[in-house]
Design a protein around this nucleic acid. Structure first.
Lengths: 220, 220
DNA sequence: TGCAGTTTCAAACGTATGATTCAATCAAAC
DNA sequence: GTTTGATTGAATCATACGTTTGAAACTGCA
């Protein structure tokens, strides 16, 4: 059997090209040329260019979701309420572990994920959201670890947390990301994000000045 | 003089379309059609599609830079070392004030800025960096306000701050962003980011630089 | 009015795009 | 050893792209 070598070559090439140039910035011909494969192979194996993006996403989302579920189960399975640091650590560690295991593909996958999750195209956002939905199950755990936040405020802050993580992936370094530096990166992210999440809710009352500075009206 | 109506119409249309679909996702024909203008007008007034993006960026970067300089001067002109909250507030407030003053164009400009800043295309990154380089002058002030961070760690955290701001712009709400809600948003951002910046350095070896290239800091 | 410079217009340039066709090729099941 | 279904290859589809052209329409000034 000729196996799925052609299919995999297409996925590999598309993954690397999408990571650098984004979906719109890459043509089917570029992909098939980089894969050393005929143009028609894309439509035979996938059906469309969009389906190739879905294929790349599917291939990487599965392992990450499994790992995340596993790590989060460890943290939340105990009797005590899990610490926020541990929740965040498990959440981000899942991605980073998979990226490191992917070895040479790690950088491409990281940047691919960063690009895909920050893409504003409707159907790409839907796809990313769908792939990421297993992670939404841990919102209650975050809410428990952050009793000073109401759900609205928590939602706001979670979006900022995601922004930081996505940006970190999108600018993943070309090389030199070994286990040690990955651990340092993880520590930095958890430190920064934990502090941000734990911060007391801001006064929305615009009449109280901030930090000794006189209050200014945005539009006089 | 026939004024620059055509030129402005092109800039308006391009601004709105780039905000929604990104640079690669928009064609010159879409822009000129939305502007009610002939295709050739783009090359007559700008010379290329890239130059249109530069034109849109130029038009909005000037006022923002002026306002930021003005607000930061107020904060840093006193004798006392400015508080971190005030630095961050002034930094972000400049953007938000301009966006609100732009009225109907505000949403488009916000999303345009968010997209442009987070774009990974080399020449777009360079352009964004160049346009907002005036903001880099306040790095010493941040360093003063954060004596517990070494320059490397500070650079790292600044990149996370920028990620949060950029993401906030990229997902700017379609409507309902009046002065009051903008003030609330600003408060949320300052609260979250201040806490993140003030967090003690993570214990896992803060001094070792990450291998290879660092994350790129848009506003160093 | 006549002229010179500026701006707009329809049309076309060559190239690239995503998608499709269909004969040739292949591994293996019969 | 032939048949079968899966896969590839080269060529082609219509469309869209960024860009360029050159003539028409306009402008302000003599």
């Amino acid at each position: 059997m000729p196996t799925d070598r052609t299919k995999d070559e297409i996925l590999d090439a598309a993954e690397g090209l999408f990571a650098v140039h984004g979906f719109d910035g890459v043509s089917i011909r570029q992909i098939t040329k980089a894969a050393g494969v005929n143009v028609a192979a894309v439509h035979y194996h996938f059906g469309s260019k969009e389906a190739v993006l879905r294929g790349v996403t599917d291939r990487v989302a599965g392992p990450i979701n499994d790992r995340r579920e596993e790590l989060l189960r460890k943290v939340t399975s105990g009797e005590a309420v899990p610490e926020l640091e541990d929740l965040l650590d498990a959440f981000i560690r899942a991605d980073i572990e998979i990226l490191l295991e992917l070895q040479g593909r790690g950088t491409a996958v990281a940047r691919f994920l960063g690009r895909t999750y920050s893409d504003q195209t409707a159907w790409i956002q839907e796809m990313a959201l769908e792939q990421f939905s297993p992670a939404s199950g841990l919102l209650p755990a975050f809410l428990n670890a952050l009793p000073h936040l109401n759900p609205t405020e928590l939602g706001w802050r979670i979006s900022l947390v995601v922004a930081v993580i996505v940006q970190t992936f999108a600018t993943w370094p070309e090389e030199g990301m070994d286990a040690k530096s990955a651990e340092a990166l993880l520590g930095r992210l958890v430190t920064f994000l934990t502090a941000g999440l734990r911060a007391p809710v801001a006064r929305s009352d615009p009449s109280s000045p901030r930090g000794g500075q006189q209050h200014r009206v945005l539009i006089p």
